[in-house]
Amino acid sequence: MKHEIDDPQVRHYLAALKARLYQLPADQFEEIVFGVREHIADALERGGQSVDDILAGLGSPDDIATGLATPDAPGPGQRQPIPFAQQPTQRPQSSILWLVGTCILLPFGGFVVGIGWLLGVAGLWMGMRWQLWEKVMGTILIPGGVPAALLLAGLPVRQTLASSGPEGEVIISDYNPLGFSLPEVSFVIILALPILAALYLLIVGLVRGSRQP
């Protein structure tokens, strides 16, 4: 649920806050920014306060970031962490299945009629465990995944052309559809890149997941 606030001062404030909270896990980041944005929207809706007053009451983005310094240790009678439930911002990526599925589809989804990779990209961009730059990296480094890397390198993936010669014999030839072949080292790098990128996304997703609700 977004509260759109069309005020340059508020936008600037929220941008500054996001910059201070950038190192937080994505879900935690979203939760705090959402709370502050909702606070501003509710205060404006209620009336009686200018944007200046509301922002002054909130304190500086640095003040809010300082509020994160409190220890996370459970107090007496507390339960184990529970999911970020009942919020419209909750998405299925909270599950390990979503995370693992995305990280498998990105490098290998291309083998599934080609659309598997697109599903992986959708999972990546809908996911909240990854920062923006990681999503961009995951998309750019893995365009098409391993199948595309194989195609690019032009080694194991070859298409067979069959045609009839003048004598009626069948001529079978392999060819690289791109018309060139990269050296072996480049091939290994190109092949490893999508796998390594997916592995990185999986690890950071799991680490952040263990710290999130």
Partner: peptide
């Protein structure tokens, strides 16, 4: 003093299972 500091605290209380939304 700074109302904004409430939101990291609420997020932590929710993560610790003390409040729900």
């Amino acid at each position: 003093t700074s109302e904004g500091t409430l939101y990291p605290l609420l997020a932590r209380l929710r993560r610790n299972g003390q409040v729900e939304t």
